[in-house]
Design a protein around this nucleic acid. Sequence first.
DNA 1: GTGTGTGAAGGGTTTCACAGCA
DNA 2: TGCTGTGAAACCCTTCACACAC
Lengths: 207, 207
Amino acid sequence: MKKISESTIRRLSKYYRSLEQLIARNTDTVSSDQLAEMDGITSAQVRKDLSFFGTFGKRGLGYNTRALKEQIGEILGLSKEWRVAIVGAGNIGKALVNYGEFRKQGFQVHLIMDSDHGKVGQTIQGLTVESTDHLPQLIKKQRIEIAIIAVPSEAAQRVADELMEAGVKAILNFAPISIKAPEGIQVKNENTAIEIEALSYFLTNQG
Amino acid sequence: MKKISESTIRRLSKYYRSLEQLIARNTDTVSSDQLAEMDGITSAQVRKDLSFFGTFGKRGLGYNTRALKEQIGEILGLSKEWRVAIVGAGNIGKALVNYGEFRKQGFQVHLIMDSDHGKVGQTIQGLTVESTDHLPQLIKKQRIEIAIIAVPSEAAQRVADELMEAGVKAILNFAPISIKAPEGIQVKNENTAIEIEALSYFLTNQG
DNA sequence: GTGTGTGAAGGGTTTCACAGCA
DNA sequence: TGCTGTGAAACCCTTCACACAC
């Protein structure tokens, strides 16, 4: 398969969400123009993105909302249930256990861990916080595929290494450093500080 | 001033964090190679990014960590204290009030609001949750410049409109829809679902 | 010698514009 | 007629490679 850019994938994810909205409103058909409008981009971009994966629309008409959502879900791998673990039961970790968008799309949190023995044993959404002392065993036992890192910077790379060693294939990192990983392991860094600093820059320099 | 790309700004934000780390370790000098290594990019990229704003290094030597951090902070507008409000006192809203990376860089949360009267009056980190009924007055009184939206999708655009109407100039949106705003208002959408779905795609298609 | 600063080259992504089909 | 699908053009961003300063 042709190599698809990260930005195309991120937009597909947006289309998916917009289609959900349209379906909730009982809309059967949508044009690339409408989708573009909802996501703040151009219609050519929408059509180009979709064209990498096939032809889903009808000329003169548009796309069937349910069918297109289904197909994008398939492309993104959302038809599968993913087994997720969260490391770090602080504010971010806790917020994510409860995050509805995850569950809705088949990302199931099966494990939450923390190194703080004061937190171990606590219950969050019916899930007991486990100790990171047993990270490798727990990850393997629970057959975790995707791990979320929500620990302080200093610990993040070490935790990532242990996770990868235990067989985790993808990491979503909330610590404000770049996680290093070998080829074949997927890593995404989510850093809210970067977003707000970008706002600060644009406010300062063109506001 | 020449137009600078979003990606350059986001990288500056990373360099800033890496420089903080280096300074904490008492490192005085850093080369573009080392910075690149820390952030997982190329040294040419580092030098090019910096060159848009001036010449900060010494040939044959590298960059002074403290001076460079200072200058990047200046570029990003971090020398100023920004007045921030959070709308939505759910899990994400609560996590952000406590978010150390914000405070450290001068983003001060002065106001948190929620529409749920059960939450109004609660105290989070010494801040009392206010009712969104008085959003315009509160935003104006507190002279809020940056607002963070952490409410459900359905309410997000309405809240954004009220915020902009009340004079907010930048919005960081955590609701999983694209906020629409006129020219001149800065908006960043942060959507963790997109990140994890990108992981899902790459796991499914090249794992 | 070492590592920056930068024009030029290269690669990739977005936009244009239109043929083609419902 | 209306809107998709798509080569080609335009644009932007990254990488190369080297002169130059320390």
